[in-house]
């Protein structure tokens, strides 16, 4: 139990460190931000519908 617990804790710490460091970076160029937003909306539209489809289908 000790080895998995240490690894999980370290892993979560690493993920948080990497995610927070990247979250702090801001996009300074407006055009890049707009294009990036379009991709984000498209990806989330797909993921939301996929999530619903899978969780209706699997049960």
């Amino acid at each position: 139990m000790i080895l998995p617990a240490i690894t999980i804790t370290l892993g979560i710490a690493t993920i948080l460190y990497l995610a927070v460091s990247n979250y702090a970076v801001k996009i300074r160029n407006n055009r890049i931000d707009q294009v990036s937003d379009l991709i984000k909306k498209g990806a989330f539209a797909y993921l939301g519908r996929q999530f619903k489809t899978i969780f209706v289908f699997i049960p």
């Binding site: 995610a19 801001k26 160029n29 890049i32 990036s36 991709i39 993921l47």
Partner: peptide, 17 residues
């Protein structure tokens, strides 16, 4: 996906400099 979805925009922005 939530973690990486804005990263490409940030990488593109950083690549300018």
């Amino acid at each position: 996906m939530i973690m990486i979805i804005k990263v490409h925009g940030k990488a593109a922005d950083a690549a300018r400099t």
